[in-house]
Amino acid sequence: FIEISMSYIPADSKLEFLAHLTPLVPLVEFFIASMILLGIYTRSSLIGAIALGIFFTFLFHYFGDVETALTHSYTLILKVGLFYTLYYNKFSADYFNVYNASRIKEEQLKLQRSKRIKQQVRESLQGL
């Protein structure tokens, strides 16, 4: 993988620094895929996967490997589709985060309503 990916970028290119980052790409992709499959920070992981897909689609297109760029664009379409159709099921770790956040928000709204009602009662009693 490293030899193939380093062969894309010539040694005298301005993008030579990318050749040294290629060993990290499989690790990043594995980490992102694991996060998506486990349901941990799914939306953030999908945003990272989409950004990575856009980068590699343009990079392969720039280097003239249209077939690989086309493959990356197909997977990019799938990632964007997954991002917009994402829902949290009860087995997802994000489900609990969303549930807790909505519960906390509801409690804050109830507290604000009760404070507003108390303030209105005080104002009406002062008027008597």
Results as ranks from 00 to 15, higher is better:
52 L>T: 05
67 E>K: 10
116 R>G: 04
98 V>T: 00
17 F>H: 13
104 I>K: 10
105 K>V: 07
121 V>G: 02
33 A>Y: 01
55 F>T: 06
40 I>V: 09
36 I>P: 00
20 H>Y: 15
87 Y>R: 15
54 I>Y: 11
117 I>P: 04
77 I>H: 13
90 K>N: 02
83 F>A: 14
88 Y>G: 00
80 V>K: 04
73 S>D: 09
29 E>M: 15
69 A>K: 01
112 Q>P: 00
44 S>G: 07
111 L>V: 04
122 R>H: 15
82 L>K: 10
66 V>Q: 11
28 V>R: 05
105 K>Y: 13
86 L>R: 09
100 N>A: 14
62 Y>E: 14
59 L>Y: 09
112 Q>S: 10
18 L>P: 00
115 K>A: 10
11 A>N: 07
73 S>Y: 05
78 L>W: 07
16 E>A: 14
124 S>C: 02
120 Q>C: 07
114 S>N: 12
54 I>D: 08
97 N>D: 11
56 F>D: 04
81 G>F: 09
36 I>A: 00
26 P>G: 08
110 K>L: 14
60 F>L: 11
32 I>L: 15
102 S>Y: 08
20 H>E: 15
24 L>R: 11
49 A>L: 09
75 T>E: 15
81 G>T: 01
11 A>Q: 09
121 V>C: 06
11 A>H: 03
83 F>N: 10
52 L>P: 08
14 K>G: 11
85 T>K: 06
111 L>H: 11
96 F>I: 02
105 K>F: 15
52 L>R: 04
50 I>G: 04
15 L>W: 08
107 E>V: 02
29 E>I: 08
91 F>Q: 02
61 H>T: 04
86 L>Q: 10
110 K>T: 07
107 E>K: 11
9 I>G: 04
42 T>Y: 00
38 L>D: 03
10 P>V: 00
3 E>F: 14
75 T>C: 11
99 Y>T: 02
5 S>Y: 13
34 S>N: 12
15 L>Q: 05
112 Q>E: 13
71 T>I: 05
114 S>Y: 10
31 F>L: 12
103 R>V: 02
51 A>N: 12
48 G>M: 06
94 D>H: 04
110 K>V: 05
124 S>Y: 07
108 Q>I: 05
93 A>M: 07
32 I>C: 09
126 Q>I: 01
77 I>L: 15
74 Y>I: 07
97 N>I: 08
125 L>I: 02
45 S>F: 00
102 S>G: 08
88 Y>A: 00
54 I>N: 10
110 K>S: 14
63 F>Y: 15
47 I>F: 09
52 L>I: 09
54 I>K: 12
102 S>C: 12
47 I>E: 06
80 V>H: 07
75 T>R: 14
95 Y>I: 00
79 K>T: 03
79 K>E: 15
124 S>Q: 07
37 L>Y: 04
50 I>T: 01
86 L>K: 13
103 R>D: 03
96 F>N: 03
10 P>M: 00
82 L>E: 03
13 S>K: 05
102 S>A: 13
1 F>N: 11
16 E>G: 03
83 F>W: 14
116 R>M: 08
